[in-house]
């Protein structure tokens, strides 16, 4: 087992302070150590006051998003030794209020996210050749989006428009349009159709680049635009709704 000491430079901030600072810690790592496990080791062995969010440890819950060496990542699936840098810089997500250390307030994210009624379980598209057992309509699975906020942190537009609906919420809205499953696609479309909605996007595609769960929010936002453009054209030329 290749053990190696890695230096972590972690952003620190507590309520009431005016500016954050960085603390450095040295952590023993092996070839399986993830950034999350290293941070937990820091909390256990060096500083119990280090705050961070985490839950599932396998890239499924979306709580442990942070910026590792400047890139938005789920820390639970980042292998420390594979990063290859002697110092690992760890910072909280951007474009969300900072609570303390690596914890940001997800309320603004969920305020947007829950606007159109967005279903959470969808029809499974995996293994279409399989039969479905008696008594079950179709195989279901969870939506891809982990609600981790990486896309919101990476989006260059979020930084200049605090009311921007953001990639995750609009990706979910597009899911409702593409596959309503009992929700109202009209509501979702109207919700995204404003200057803080899908028209604000500047096509930097950072949301899609950082998404850990194949959601592709950029394409979803563009699809919202396309659908709305189609409808507006129809309305202008009197072709009905």
């Amino acid at each position: 087992m290749a053990e190696r000491d890695v230096v972590f430079k972690v952003l620190r901030y507590k309520q009431g302070e005016t500016v954050p600072h960085y603390d450095t810690f040295t952590v023993k790592t092996d070839e399986n150590t993830t950034a999350l496990v290293a941070l937990q080791a820091i909390r256990r062995d060096d500083d119990p006051s280090l705050t961070l969010r985490h839950s599932c440890h396998h890239g499924s819950c979306g709580t442990c998003g942070m910026r590792i060496n400047g890139e938005e990542q789920l820390s639970c699936v980042v292998n420390v030794q594979e990063l290859g840098t002697p110092t690992v810089v760890v910072e909280p997500l951007q474009n969300a209020p900072l609570v303390s250390d690596l914890v940001v307030d997800m309320a603004p994210f969920f305020d947007r996210y829950t606007q159109p009624e967005m279903p959470y379980v969808r029809q499974s598209e995996f293994m279409p050749e399989a039969d479905v057992p008696d008594g079950i309509g179709h195989y279901t699975r969870y939506e891809n989006c982990l609600e981790c906020g990486l896309c919101v942190s990476a989006c260059p537009v979020m930084g200049s428009d605090a009311s921007y609906l953001g990639p995750a919420a609009m990706a979910a809205a597009w899911r409702v349009v593409a596959e309503p499953r009992g929700s109202d696609p009209e509501f979702a479309l109207n919700w995204a159709d404003n200057e803080h909605g899908c028209w604000r996007c500047h096509v930097a595609y950072e949301c899609t680049e950082v998404c850990p769960s194949d959601v592709n929010p950029a394409e979803a936002i563009m699809s919202l635009r396309g659908e709305l453009t189609k409808r507006k054209f129809r309305r202008v030329f009197g072709l009905g709704k």
């Binding site: 985490h54 599932c56 709580t63």
Partner: peptide, 14 residues
């Protein structure tokens, strides 16, 4: 002491 479900709860196989 941490985020809710950060101990055992969040980590099971589902």
């Amino acid at each position: 002491r941490g985020e809710v479900t950060s101990g055992t709860t969040g980590r099971h196989h589902g």
